[in-house]
Amino acid sequence: MFIIDYLKEVGGAVKSLLKGMRRTGYYFTHHKEIITEQYPDNKATLNLAQRFKGEVVMPHDEKNEHRCTGCTACELACPNGTIKVITQFVMTPEGKKKKAIDKLVYHLELCTMCNLCVIACPSDAIVMAQTFEHSVFDRSKLTKILNNPDSKIMDGVE
């Protein structure tokens, strides 16, 4: 009786192994079902999700104008101290003093892409960009100034 049980077990083992190997054989002969992406080679055709959180950027229009009022809502919303808003007072054409941003400093090396600054912004001045290759040779290159030099605030954004 022991011999029969033993042989049954061996038979079952061979059967289960063959079952698994059938799966392996199936994919060995069906190349089209393999979904490997050849990453650096397919860079041109790579489709990233629209909402992908890569880094914070400040979009500028063709007149080099942004929408940031310097209200520091993003700075307060950030959990890591990634964003620092440096403001200055500029003279408006009417001769009034007005607060505007001098620099919006963004530390990419501290950023966790949590999106809290973007949803906190009342004037939609900052958005998430879809870039994802952030490696650089020098750490100081990760500290970015988001507003372009000599950029101004758009008309009508308060």
Binding site: L48, A49, Q50, R51, F52, K53, T112, M113, C114, N115, L116, I119, M128
Partner: peptide, 22 residues
């Protein structure tokens, strides 16, 4: 990919906010 489409990230989504979703 579904997560990336909706939440914007694949692993650390941070999609929940108090009161609903982001």
């Amino acid at each position: 990919e579904i997560m990336e489409d909706t939440c914007g990230a694949r692993l650390t989504m941070n999609y929940m906010v108090p009161g609903g979703v982001m």
